Simulated assay, not measured.
Amino acid sequence: MTITRLYRRIDATRAYCFNIESSRTLNDQELDQLRLLLADGFLIDTVSLTPVLEGERVIEVGPRLNFATAWSSNMVSICQATGLDCVSRVERSRRYVVPESDDMTAFIAAHHDRMTECPYSEPLTTFETGIKPEPVYEVDLIGKGTDALLDLPGISMDEWDRNFYYDYFVKKHQRNPTIVEIMDLNNANSEHSRHGYFGGKQVVDGEEQEGTLFEVVKETLAAQPKGSLIAFKDNSSVVAGHEITTLLPKEPGHPSPLEATQVTYHPLLTAETHNFPTGVAPFPGAETGTGGRIRDVQGTGKGGFVMAGTTGYCVANLHIPGYDLPWEEQYPCPSNLARP
């Protein structure tokens, strides 16, 4: 694998560096093709082969090397769709000119996301980090019983779960599970995935309540189902729509003119809340929420597509310099959180 670096200036103090991993050295034609794909407004001269913004006061920050970003995945798809099959990863880093009055360390800390990014002390020549994954090992359920699961950090299985997996692996299959199997089961059985709490029996003061929390929520649909086409089917809910006139391609899947078409559309609304955590990585957190909302719409049924999106953000007190507001409380922001 080889790394090719291309550069695009943003302004006098900032620039992008595009780190392109390919299975072989790129020829001049392929480099020009990449320059067009990465250019500002398809102006090829905005992307150069030679470095921009160099010097002692220039720093570079970018994504952590052991995790390909969503931006890279999209860029690789574009490259391969245009015939650049040799490109396997493209990451975008940023260069800054640090003002003489600023401390270099403080500037770097303020201009990158420590959860998903890191400073580059020198130009990238490889995405390999040299870090080797921990070896897979067995969890000794045979020797230690269900208590072996209590010794694993990050495992949140209750007694019922621990007994269930002990019976499955030890009694049924006469073997120990691997740590990979246990971690995968732990994630799959999270409340987000299985809804064990909302779908389980509720016991209050020793008395079992009638119906689960999910059943209580669904009672409204059972009492008045009129107009509801899809409800509580995991992704989204759909209400009955009506026939409208809209513009659709004359030949879907091919370049074609749009024509007025009578179709019946059923509207749906889906909401997505996500915590990347957004307090640490606000932009990746927003991307995760947006992607989940789009996926839910398209996963509701055949023909589902996104018409519009709404966004709401809740942030802490902004503390804008010179703009004090009476309701803002003065408390220190933890150093590991992005400032609002």
Rank of each mutant, 00 (worst) to 15 (best):
L152R: 03
P153A: 04
I155K: 06
I155C: 02
S156V: 02
M157W: 01
W160N: 08
W160V: 15
N163V: 09
F164P: 01
F164A: 15
Y165Q: 04
Y168S: 08
K172I: 09
H173A: 03
Q174M: 03
R175M: 08
N176K: 02
P177G: 04
V180L: 11
E181D: 10
E181G: 05
D184T: 15
N186Q: 00
N186H: 02
N189Q: 10
S190L: 04
E191F: 07
E191G: 12
E191P: 04
R194G: 04
R194M: 13
R194C: 05
Y197L: 14
Q202S: 13
Q202A: 09
Q202P: 01
D205P: 01
D205E: 04
E208C: 02
E208I: 02
E208T: 15
F214E: 14
K218M: 13
E219Y: 05
A222I: 07
Q224F: 09
K226R: 08
K226I: 06
S228I: 15
L229C: 02
L229V: 14
K233R: 15
S237K: 00
S237I: 05
A240K: 15
G241Q: 04
L247G: 13
L248G: 05
L248I: 10
H254S: 12
P257L: 09
E259V: 11
A260S: 10
T261W: 08
H266E: 09
P267A: 07
P267R: 01
P267H: 04
L269Y: 14
A271I: 15
A271C: 07
T273K: 04
H274D: 11
F276M: 01
T278N: 11
T278W: 02
T278E: 01
V280F: 10
P282W: 01
P282V: 06
G285R: 00
E287D: 10
T288L: 15
